[in-house]
Design a protein around this nucleic acid. Sequence first.
DNA 1: TAGGCCATCTGGTCCT
DNA 2: AGGACCAGATGGCCTA
Length: 351
Amino acid sequence: MMTKSFGKSDVNELVSSLSWLEEDGSSQDGDESPEMRGRNGLTLASRMHSCTELGSEDMEEEEEEEDDDDIGPNGENAPKRRGPKKKKMTKARQERFRARRIKANARERSRMHGLNDALDNLRRVMPCYSKTQKLSKIETLRLARNYIWALSEVLESGQSPESHGFVEMLCKGLSQPTSNLVAGCLQLGSSPMMLNKLEEKCGPGLAAVTGQAHTLSFPSPGLPSPPYGSLEASHLLQIKGFKGPAYDNPSSTECSSGTPPYDGPLTPPLSISGNFPLKQEPSPHDSDRNFSSHVGHHAQYLSSHHYASAGSLTGHQGHPLFQPPRFELPLDVAFDSFAPSHLVPSQMGSI
DNA sequence: TAGGCCATCTGGTCCT
DNA sequence: AGGACCAGATGGCCTA
């Protein structure tokens, strides 16, 4: 017979742990979406459900099991079970267990929110960022990895950040829509003005390299946007010469999510430390369709840094060396109108 | 309607 | 004992 009373500390713990009831109901974040509220409403139901479950049947079963422990199938005394003896699930223990579980759930929620915040921060420094059309988690991680790899290549081999190879590196292992997006953003980022600056900084040698980039560059800023979120299958970009397994190897396995599997380790030829640009907070001018041309500017910074071309580009507060231009873009534009000619599906055949 | 993505709950494991 | 982390399960939302 359990005689431990339900102490004051237990009550306090339970009360504090139940604060989620208020928090969830009153939207502690302020910007909670209706979907979120709906979800919380549902989880509330499931919580209540699991509470009642634990409080009735489970506990009774456990106590019955406990009682039968020492009695064999024929009624004789069976050998004692080894290991720590299971404690009885008394009412007080059950309450504490429940309170602990609720606290653990809250911690887990906040942990996942922190993880998602970190992912959001990562999305913001990716070459293509949109508040409304977020990259999925897995695509964000893949693109981040590719981005580091590609920028490292820029440093190692002097490859132009506007080159075809750079786009290929960025898109390696990404799903086709994400590849389209990245390629589209890069076109916007490689404005003639920026390329000119790059040439100024790095000299005619780089100008020769970026000659290819000029053929890729977007005719003028202010023209159509990439069809972010409104891609049609016929507009999907297929990257020519792409060596990703899922694109040119029909036998390669595809993951269930529809995104191509990543083909083994990409080892970035990273030989620098601490040279990556400082993180920039998104400008307050960011609109839903602002595509910051991080790639070009990160790479531009890296190039100028790497090749020791001193001198300031801008006096930007966030970072002294580069200041990404931002483009206001319309929504409903077909990708074909600005896709680089060598990346247009019609010239590629099917893959 | 199926599939992808996501948030949440939950139990297990490890560590302090 | 309790917290952090992880992975599986579940159910909702969205889109093709």
